[in-house]
């Protein structure tokens, strides 16, 4: 059952470790060594997934997302850790996180808080410093991103040896729940405009449910300067510039069950500004 390494040349990370001669090994996989017998190698310790969960006032959602994450990973059998980066929520999110650590163990749940609200980009940098996995999964903690898609992200990543796998609401079975027609129209229009102007080779640029190779995310974080929606777009655009490969998984986006969802006129203006900035500078 040798996984045949395909000969197709795809842009790959220069930072990739020099093991690429051999196919990557995963738990329980058998590998045919050239000209000899099968050798089974247990390689469980080699691949680990770190989930970064930036939170602000997610007391209601945090235990639920953690529960879903743990269940998804236990069913799929991949090694994982969940890193909660809380920006000093006044609603006691951290107290809930402490309880979750007691329930699931401090090797699975890590709380790495910050004193105040400092933004998403720096939250990822902060979380990555503490991550021990070779892949980083970023997602929203508000239950709009369902952990059931993570095994699919991992499967696609392995299949195409991608540097990034991005969840997409705009392809295949992907979609949204809880959006009215106006919001859908804005979303579709903005997405079309983005595709025309940036030609990014990925269908969902503003989504934030993604899997990255750790070193790829590190490199991208050094390059990206935008905030909010634009930050997610810039990550993909810069990734293309740097020659990283991007795979996609259709996801269903279920808008916030608890708490407020935000899309105002200001958001649209700052989105357009960011889009034009990227168009003019990349």
């Amino acid at each position: 059952m040798a996984s045949s390494p395909s000969k197709t040349v795809r842009p790959r990370s220069a930072l990739q470790p020099p093991v690429s001669r051999k196919p990557r090994l995963f738990r329980g996989q058998c590998v045919c060594v050239r000209g000899s017998a099968f050798v089974a190698i247990m390689a469980a310790s080699r691949v680990k997934y770190s989930v970064l969960l930036p939170t602000y006032n997610e007391r209601q959602n945090l235990p639920l997302i953690v529960w879903l994450l743990v269940r998804s990973f236990e069913q799929s059998g991949y090694e994982f850790e969940i890193i909660i980066i809380d920006d000093g929520s006044p609603d006691g999110t951290q107290e809930i996180a402490e309880q979750l650590i007691k329930i699931y163990g401090s090797d699975k749940i890590l709380l790495r808080p910050r004193a105040k609200k400092l933004g998403l980009g720096t939250a990822y940098i902060h979380g990555m410093k503490h991550a021990t996995g070779n892949f980083i999964i970023i997602m929203d903690a508000d239950l709009s991103h369902h952990p059931k898609f993570i095994p699919e992200f991992i499967r696609i990543q392995k299949e195409g040896n991608f540097d990034i796998v991005s969840g997409t609401r705009y392809k295949g079975n992907g979609g949204v729940h809880g959006w009215d027609l106006k919001r859908k129209l804005i979303s579709r229009g903005a997405n079309f405009l983005t595709q025309v102007l940036l030609q990014p080779g990925a269908s969902d640029l503003t989504g934030s449910f993604r899997l990255y190779r750790k070193e790829v995310l590190q490199k991208l974080m050094e390059k990206c300067v935008s905030k909010g929606y634009v930050f997610q777009m810039e990550m993909i655009v810069r990734a293309r510039q740097l020659g990283y490969s991007i795979g996609e998984v259709p996801i269903s986006f279920v808008d916030r069950v608890y708490g407020e969802s935000k899309l105002g006129g200001n958001e649209i203006v700052s989105f357009l500004k960011g889009l034009l900035t990227l168009f003019a500078t990349t």
């Binding site: 369902h146 979609g175 949204v176 809880g178 859908k184 129209l185 579709r188 269903s252 279920v254």
Partner: peptide, 12 residues
């Protein structure tokens, strides 16, 4: 694309 945007009732 607006008309064919999935509503994901089952997922919700």
């Amino acid at each position: 694309r607006l008309g064919t945007f999935n509503d994901c009732e089952a997922a919700a």
